[in-house]
Amino acid sequence: MRPFLERLALPEDASWATLNRRLDGEIPFQWHHHPEFELTMTLNSRGQRFIGDHIGSYDDGDLVLVGPNLPHSWCSAEKVEAAKPHVALVMWFLPQWTAPLGGVFTELRAVAAMLARAQTGLQFSAATASSARPLIEELFTLPPDERLIQLLLVLTLLSRDAEAEPLASPLALPAPDKPVDRGRIDRVLDHVHRHYAEKLTIEALADIAALSPSGLHRLFLRHTGQSVTSYLARLRIGAACALLSGGTRPIAMIADDVGYDSLANFNRQFKAQRSVTPRQYRQRFRMGG
């Protein structure tokens, strides 16, 4: 399935949309993008999130803001409480909707600044997510007028989070292009994100895009600002970081899990991107630094 441009239908009585998504099975990988900002709180679920060229692990209470047209997906691994469903509380609002925030409403300049930072995605700190959780859960019970006020309260709270972390690199921001090129790059990115741990060749990816290898290189560089090889390495090392921080699996096995058949090459690529070895990364993560 190729990534798709998700088109959201607004309710008649609101200028933005919400979804209280509850799944007994799993949160499936659905690589997609849309013109709206998306604020998602994930509850009773653990797994991986994919945002642009970012791969990271998520846990109960994860709160992320995704910028317009930034490809993304969540993919669950397990529930926290097996008897309860995976829950995603999702809020979508258009960039046009937020335009007056920093101009007309001076008091909301911090919110406008946060939304600008969210172009590459933002993960909020555990403390801020915990504070926002009751506000977000209550938001879904309110009538439309009160729901809007509650959303502004949530965004204001989030804008004060000095520990919010960017997720994707600026290179992952979507580039405006012709529709046919958008379809080609989407097909390639979908395949790369689904199969990054496998052996991928430029020739095979070029076939997916219906281009020559050189044509694929130009298209990929124009949309992502980097080569296919560099993008793939970022995905693999990002996935390795999630595995290193989330368990005790041996490093050699993690290297194999994310697509490296050479531990030495994995260590070299990891240090080039993170400035530490995989072992040092795991130790630093456990120490909270």
Score class of each variant (00 low, 15 high):
residue 8 L to A: 02
residue 8 L to F: 15
residue 10 L to G: 04
residue 10 L to R: 13
residue 10 L to M: 02
residue 14 A to Q: 11
residue 16 W to K: 08
residue 18 T to F: 01
residue 19 L to C: 04
residue 20 N to S: 12
residue 21 R to A: 01
residue 22 R to M: 06
residue 28 P to W: 13
residue 30 Q to N: 12
residue 30 Q to V: 06
residue 31 W to K: 06
residue 32 H to D: 02
residue 32 H to R: 13
residue 33 H to N: 09
residue 33 H to Q: 13
residue 35 P to G: 03
residue 39 L to D: 00
residue 39 L to P: 02
residue 41 M to C: 03
residue 43 L to K: 15
residue 44 N to A: 11
residue 46 R to H: 12
residue 47 G to L: 01
residue 47 G to R: 04
residue 49 R to Y: 13
residue 49 R to C: 08
residue 52 G to F: 13
residue 52 G to Y: 08
residue 55 I to M: 07
residue 60 D to T: 07
residue 60 D to Q: 05
residue 62 D to E: 15
residue 63 L to H: 07
residue 69 N to I: 03
residue 72 H to D: 08
residue 72 H to F: 07
residue 74 W to L: 10
residue 74 W to G: 10
residue 75 C to T: 05
residue 76 S to K: 00
residue 77 A to R: 13
residue 78 E to N: 04
residue 78 E to M: 06
residue 79 K to P: 01
residue 80 V to N: 10
residue 87 V to M: 14
residue 89 L to Y: 06
residue 97 W to L: 09
residue 97 W to P: 01
residue 103 G to D: 12
residue 103 G to Y: 10
residue 105 F to M: 08
residue 106 T to E: 10
residue 107 E to Y: 00
residue 107 E to C: 06
residue 108 L to W: 11
residue 113 A to G: 09
residue 116 A to P: 00
residue 118 A to L: 09
residue 125 S to A: 15
residue 125 S to F: 06
residue 127 A to E: 15
residue 127 A to H: 08
residue 129 A to D: 11
residue 131 S to K: 12
residue 132 A to L: 08
residue 132 A to D: 14
residue 136 I to V: 10
residue 139 L to I: 05
residue 143 P to N: 15
residue 144 P to H: 15
residue 151 L to A: 04
residue 152 L to Y: 15
residue 154 V to G: 08
residue 158 L to Q: 15
residue 159 S to H: 10
residue 160 R to K: 05
residue 161 D to Y: 01
residue 162 A to M: 07
residue 166 P to Y: 12
residue 166 P to C: 09
residue 166 P to D: 11
residue 168 A to K: 03
residue 168 A to M: 12
residue 176 P to D: 11
residue 176 P to S: 12
residue 180 V to E: 02
residue 182 R to M: 00
residue 187 R to H: 11
residue 194 R to W: 00
residue 197 A to R: 14
residue 198 E to A: 09
residue 199 K to T: 14
residue 202 I to P: 00
residue 204 A to G: 02
residue 204 A to P: 00
residue 206 A to L: 08
residue 209 A to K: 04
residue 212 S to F: 11
residue 216 L to C: 05
residue 216 L to Q: 03
residue 217 H to G: 05
residue 222 R to W: 02
residue 223 H to R: 06
residue 227 S to F: 14
residue 231 Y to E: 06
residue 231 Y to D: 03
residue 233 A to I: 03
residue 239 A to I: 07
residue 243 L to I: 08
residue 244 L to H: 07
residue 252 A to D: 03
residue 252 A to N: 10
residue 257 D to H: 06
residue 258 V to I: 02
residue 258 V to K: 13
residue 260 Y to T: 05
residue 262 S to Q: 03
residue 267 N to M: 08
residue 270 F to C: 08
residue 270 F to H: 06
residue 273 Q to C: 01
residue 274 R to D: 05
residue 276 V to L: 07
residue 276 V to P: 01
residue 278 P to Q: 07
residue 281 Y to N: 02
residue 284 R to G: 12
residue 288 G to V: 11
residue 289 G to T: 13
